[in-house]
Structures are given as C-alpha cells and as structure tokens.
C-alpha cells in the first residue's frame, strides 16, 4: 500500500505468437519522475494502456494506490496518450469544459494560466493549431489535473527543442512529492537529467529498473549512452 503502483506477473499476449508484455513484476514509489525506455515494439505503450485500463492483462494485474485498475483508479491517473482523442473542430475552451465535467481533480485556472504563459488563445479550434502547439495543449490538460499518477506516452516526440524545454519545466514545476510521473520516450538524452529512475524494456521483458545516478556511477556514462550499448543493433 506504500508503493503507488504495484505490477504483479503482468502479461499481455495479443495472440500466442505476439506477447507484448511478458511477466513483469515491478513496484513504483510515489514522488518520482520515472522514464519508461525501450526500442520500438518493446511493449511500453501496451504496459501504459494496461495501467489506464484500456487493455486488459492476459495474466497478472496492476494495482494503483492498492486498487486494481478500473473506474476508481482512472479518477487518480492523468494520461497523455500517444495519439490524440480530441476532435479538431472543438475550441480549447470547450475542451476545458469537457475536462471539468469529466475529472473532479481538473484545475481550470491552472490550465488557463499555462495556456496564457504560452500565448495560446483558448478560443482557437484545435485543428487550427500546429502539431507542436496541439501537443502542448494536451500536455497542459493532463498536467492540470491533481492526480496521483501522470502517465505520459511520448510527450516530447513532436515538438521543437524550445517547446521540449517548456514541457520538461512544466513537469518539474508540477512535481509534488505525493505523485509520480511516468513518461515513455526515445529521446533519452533530452530528458535524463529530469528523471529519478529509469525502466528499460525489451521484447516485453523488464530489463532494468534503477536510478539515473546509479547508471552514471556504475558505468561512467549517461543513460543515453548506456541505452545505446544495451540495445545495440
């Protein structure tokens, strides 16, 4: 009950040949920013979808705050998916209304002030925004919730380096000791100084779960360099 996330014997097989997540057991604490890292097809998104109740495990289970993933846990998990689910014709302000209705912990004022700091007009329709701006809006929506767990699937993939810095700063500024941020990415070098811990996945297996400074201390190299070594093709 002390750990925020408890994953036990978790397996997801799409069919007998395609096991996306293979028998993962892992506990993740509160108050950390954790990177979920692995090459394409290593099972990161499948794992994330199971944390959000969008896919059901074939075996095993996930508990968040001691509760099995379900309607109750969704109220405490803020999720940024790898693809958008918002329709382009909506104005940002309408999406804010939508989030207020949907999530009790959504802080509209916080979202508005973040939009303002980026000079994004809430009257704009989503489809008129650039890809990078749309990604920023979605991150703002997710980070404006007062959740226990923030799960961000590739939050920095499509944005320019300056926007990337803004996103990382947003994550740091919203950090609070009671909640954990789990984020998946390929762009390790850009974010490793923001991370406490990293999870390496390969072919659905858990390869490594340790702290960033442990890797640097033990191997004398960055997580980025170590990742390239472990996953060399």
């Amino acid at each position: 009950m002390n750990e925020l996330i408890e994953i036990a014997g978790l397996t997801k097989a799409y069919d007998s040949k395609h096991v996306a997540v293979n028998n993962i057991t892992l506990s993740l604490p509160r108050g950390k920013i954790i990177g979920l890292l692995g090459p394409n097809g290593s099972g990161k998104t499948t794992l994330i979808k199971m944390m959000n109740g969008l896919l059901s495990p074939t075996h095993g289970n996930i508990r968040i705050n001691g509760q099995l993933v379900g309607t109750d846990t969704k109220a405490h998990v803020a999720y940024l998916p790898d693809r958008t689910y918002l329709s382009g014709g909506q104005r940002i302000s309408a999406v804010l209304d939508y989030f207020c209705d949907f999530y009790l912990d959504f802080q509209r004022e916080k979202a508005l002030s973040m939009l303002q700091s980026l000079n994004i007009d809430p009257d704009m329709k989503l489809k008129t925004l650039s890809k990078g701006t749309r990604e920023k809006v979605q991150l703002i929506l997710v980070m404006s919730r007062d959740a226990d767990l923030y799960v961000l699937d590739e939050p920095i993939a499509g944005v320019d380096p300056a926007a990337r810095d803004y996103i990382l700063r947003t994550i740091i500024n919203n950090y609070n000791p009671g909640s954990t941020v789990l984020l998946s990415t390929h762009l390790i070098g850009d974010i490793e100084s923001v991370l406490d811990e990293v999870i390496f996945m390969r072919y659905g297996h858990l390869v490594l779960y340790t702290s960033v400074d442990n890797i640097r201390e033990q191997h004398g190299k960055s997580v980025d360099a170590y990742f390239r070594e472990v996953f060399a093709c």
Partner: peptide, 13 residues
Amino acid sequence: RELAATAAVNPNT
C-alpha cells in the same frame, strides 16, 4: 523546486 526548474533537473536530485 525553483533551482531544479532553472537547472532543468529532477527536484529530488
């Protein structure tokens, strides 16, 4: 938190 944001590093670090 301020210094972590300035340095762009993890607050726990």
